[in-house]
Simulated assay, not measured.
Amino acid sequence: MASACTNATTTVRSVRLFRIDGFSLVSSTMGHDECFKFRWDVDGYEWELHCFPSYFSAVWLKLMFLSDADATCNVRASLGYLLVHPGLDGLSQERRTSDVFKRPNDCTQQVYLVNKVDLPVPSRSSDDHLTVQCTITILKDLPEVPTSVPVPTSNLHLHFGELLRSGTGADVTFLVSGESFLAHKLILAARSPVLMAEFFGHMREASSPNVVIEDMEPAAFKAMLHFLYTDTVPELDHELQAVAPMAQHLLAAADRYGLDRLKVLCEGKLSGGITIDTAATTLALAEQHNCSHLKTKCIEFIISTPAVFDAVVATEGYRHLEASCPSALTSILLSMRGRRY
């Protein structure tokens, strides 16, 4: 069976000659820590070669990294160095050092090039030079090739939202407190079991192009329609204090039309901001529309302390709760049994 090999890296290589004229003279006047510097750009990175001509009677080299490494990876590079000089064939063997560079001024270790006593005495001034062939090799990771074609995120809700906005192909008009809303029976029926029965069952709305909606605010109905088409409720994306009335109306609408997800969204929103002023009315709403989680949250808040309980009992909402949902009062009393304040 044939085998295959895939390269995960590639290399970038650059070669240059660096020459110091009058080497014997200048090297005799330089200290151990003094050096010649040569700038070099390779693959978008800036480098600097340091040549120390009098480092304890020998010539030494060092490579310094001057750029910033990539945010996702460090720079792996090597320096190859070869002395180029007539009559030094025995000494002219390329050597190499490598390192990983992470930040500006990172360096390789100093590397030995040649002992100065091994350099031939120049017979004339034109021969008095030191030439070094240097090679920088950068090892680069190849970008990862995706194993599959990236799939865009779904924008189905955007298309359906535009269909609702434009009204193209609408076959039903809802009349809500003097306002009209165009819609599509098939889409609504697919989302709501109640509307499925109304439009495609034996109810009178099945063939009617107009449907009158009673006991619902136009804004709440519009928000519900938007949810039916897009599965989103932008009206609930603000602080609860600003959207509590809308959340309450939408919860009732969701229960009315069998929209379980919308009902849970509204229940969660209302559960997150129960106050003394809203506790009783929210509890009545939860009792009427069978929202067990919201009901539990309301009762826990009401009986949390005697002061909170007394404050809630004094609200208008509590009097409404007494009149409309006596069963909720029983739940409160049962929850208070055995509680010690």
Results as ranks from 00 to 15, higher is better:
residue 128 D to V: 05
residue 101 F to K: 08
residue 132 V to G: 01
residue 111 V to L: 07
residue 152 P to A: 11
residue 104 P to M: 04
residue 99 D to G: 09
residue 129 H to D: 09
residue 98 S to F: 02
residue 102 K to L: 02
residue 121 V to N: 01
residue 168 T to Q: 14
residue 106 D to P: 02
residue 102 K to V: 02
residue 175 L to Q: 11
residue 162 E to H: 10
residue 133 Q to C: 15
residue 175 L to K: 12
residue 133 Q to L: 12
residue 171 D to H: 06
residue 151 V to G: 01
residue 120 P to I: 00
residue 137 T to N: 12
residue 173 T to Q: 02
residue 124 R to I: 03
residue 129 H to T: 00
residue 115 N to V: 01
residue 147 T to H: 10
residue 148 S to R: 13
residue 167 G to D: 05
residue 149 V to H: 09
residue 175 L to W: 01
residue 112 Y to K: 14
residue 159 H to Y: 10
residue 124 R to L: 04
residue 176 V to P: 00
residue 106 D to F: 05
residue 130 L to F: 05
residue 115 N to S: 12
residue 100 V to L: 00
residue 120 P to D: 06
residue 119 L to A: 09
residue 165 R to S: 13
residue 116 K to A: 04
residue 97 T to W: 00
residue 154 S to Y: 07
residue 173 T to I: 10
residue 103 R to F: 09
residue 158 L to W: 04
residue 158 L to T: 13
residue 130 L to E: 04
residue 122 P to Q: 08
residue 159 H to P: 04
residue 177 S to F: 04
residue 161 G to C: 05
residue 145 V to A: 13
residue 117 V to A: 11
residue 153 T to Y: 11
residue 143 P to R: 04
residue 162 E to S: 14
residue 103 R to H: 09
residue 146 P to G: 03
residue 118 D to V: 00
residue 134 C to D: 07
residue 101 F to A: 03
residue 138 I to M: 11
residue 118 D to H: 14
residue 120 P to N: 07
residue 159 H to W: 01
residue 164 L to H: 03
residue 133 Q to M: 15
residue 178 G to H: 03
residue 155 N to D: 15
residue 140 K to R: 13
residue 165 R to E: 15
residue 179 E to S: 13
residue 164 L to E: 01
residue 165 R to Q: 14
residue 132 V to C: 09
residue 107 C to L: 02
residue 168 T to E: 15
residue 148 S to F: 11
residue 170 A to H: 06
residue 119 L to R: 07
residue 169 G to L: 15
residue 165 R to A: 15
residue 168 T to G: 05
residue 124 R to W: 08
residue 136 I to L: 14
residue 161 G to L: 01
residue 133 Q to N: 14
residue 111 V to N: 07
residue 147 T to D: 13
residue 127 D to I: 01
residue 126 S to K: 11
residue 173 T to C: 05
residue 110 Q to T: 10
residue 134 C to K: 07
residue 139 L to C: 11
residue 173 T to Y: 01
residue 112 Y to E: 06
residue 134 C to G: 08
residue 174 F to V: 01
residue 128 D to A: 09
residue 161 G to T: 07
residue 178 G to D: 03
residue 173 T to V: 13
residue 138 I to D: 07
residue 112 Y to F: 15
residue 130 L to D: 04
residue 121 V to A: 08
residue 144 E to T: 12
residue 168 T to F: 08
residue 164 L to S: 05
residue 109 Q to G: 11
residue 146 P to I: 02
residue 109 Q to M: 09
residue 100 V to E: 03
residue 128 D to H: 07
residue 125 S to D: 14
residue 159 H to S: 12
residue 172 V to E: 05
residue 127 D to T: 03
residue 115 N to R: 15
residue 180 S to R: 13
residue 120 P to T: 09
residue 155 N to W: 00
residue 118 D to Q: 13
residue 161 G to W: 02
residue 151 V to I: 13
residue 175 L to P: 00
residue 132 V to I: 15
